[in-house]
Amino acid sequence: MKVSNARVCVLRIEGTNCEEESYLSFKRLGAKPEKVHLKQLTRTDVTSDEKRSLADYQILVLPGGFSSGDYVRAGAIFAARMKSRLSRDLVEFVRAGKPVLGICNGFQILVETGLLPAMSGIMTEVPEAVLSTNDSARFECRPTLLKKVNRGSCAFTTKIPSDKISAIPSAHAEGKLTFPVDRAKRVVKELADNDQLVFKYVDPEGDIAGYPWCPNGSTENIAGICNREGNVFGLMPHPERVFFRYTHPDWTRNPDGAGDGRAVFESVLDYVSKKL
């Protein structure tokens, strides 16, 4: 499919943020994004011309923010509302190989929905992981350095060289990717074997390092994971906030080239143009 025909659903509810940046990232690259409220997909309290169908889109984006005030747990209410009415549509979407991107709160939503890590099947009934409170118990907001550890499965990182250290900002209080305590090691190994690990937090040399390089104490420094097929991807840092070089904090010293986040959007549009 042509990129110019690729329709992108940037899904929001109350408390979503960065939907504008996510929307613009796709628009600047020639795709057809649209900001859609969840009620438009569930067809509740909307007029007939506001109604939308998930099946009409090629990419689904869950942006960052604090949906529903992060009540109960970050992303839990958005996830519950999606699951209640859109389960079948979501499963169909993912099964068709269409890409789903969850950024920050969007990643939390994908995990709470059971679309990630989804080690068995497309969507698990109960979550297999959680993004729990940062070890610091604080909101951590600053640039973080990421290294791609994915070997090629993830549709969102094909245009990122494996030796590149991407500077992508984090801004969250619940970003510590946590698996059941009694089998965390096994789960991480399985994720690695399935090529579901995508990004890890590193220091400037590209080595795994503790706080503050890793802002949250995440299991094995994991910053982003994908499903087995690589078309559902979630990460805590915000690639849409560094689409341009000049939104990097060191842009006056390194003014040339694109922002480090741009490659994520280029990768997935490349995927859409080749696979859909």
Binding site: A76, P127, S132, P180
Partner: peptide
């Protein structure tokens, strides 16, 4: 609890 209030992982 299963569907919303608790996350069985933690």
């Amino acid at each position: 609890c299963r569907k919303l209030l608790a996350n069985p992982v933690i």
